[in-house]
Amino acid sequence: MRLALGIVTAVIVGATGLAGQGVMIAPHAVFIARGARGGSVTLMNPDTAPVEVSVEVFYGYTATDSTGQLTLRTVEHPDSTQPSAAAWLQAFPRRLTIAPREQQVVRLLATPPAGLPDGEYWARLAFTAKAGQLPVGGVTDTARVKVGLTLQVRTVIGVHYRAGLVRTGLSLSGLRAVRHGDSVVVQARLERQGNAAYLGTVHGTVVGPSGQSVGEFHVPVTVFFANEPRWAVAIGSAPAGRYQLQVEVSTERDDLSQEVMLPYPVVRDSVEVAAP
């Protein structure tokens, strides 16, 4: 109890004083074509203290949950029906320390098994950056109390390994749109075709009775198997009336090089916006 009145100072670190909790990673998705032995990812430490980074490879892909939100599905021991590259994709080095304001390259080495069928195989790279123990700010009585938390940032990006002839496609079905106040909630089923993930952008437009647009959205999508996403489109104070949702899905992405995009014709659909 003699310490009951002691003052404890606690700092949970989350940032710059938080030197080095994160690294800059480029690119944010890696594409490896057959013939290339691998790829690389560049890590940069933007902070003023060294940062320790560990690298791991595992199998996972994005999919939507029951609410239409995207999530990452991981499979620790994928069977042969899963297009996993995790077992034969290695990262070097797996542990590294990046000096302040410096960058280092992590090499990816792909050693696919002989006779690998044509198609795209996936893995995820996780980079865990851990800063050193941070000094506690604002402590006046450091002889009695030293308290602090370290923040780790684990950043996960995707890897696509393309073997042989790869093709993609998309089917759009079950399109529905319901007005909720100043928004239109959109749901649809996107199912990939072919043997590679569908990379593209969904462009939706809510059109009013006289043909004018009252709201629109652009969303990048990657469909590994099938997704049932949910989007909300703001339409402001558009008056009551008959509205139509027009959707167009194309293999265009602002964030990816055109070189990695697989072609497929634009997919279109439309539906009348229903009252809630």
């Binding site: 404890v8 100072t9 989350g14 940032a15 710059t16 690294v23 800059m24 944010h28």
Partner: peptide
């Protein structure tokens, strides 16, 4: 690039 950067600590100060 993809960057996650701390901007400010979660700080409890004196307790």
């Amino acid at each position: 690039p993809l960057t996650v950067q701390g901007a400010r600590s979660l700080t409890f100060g004196s307790l």
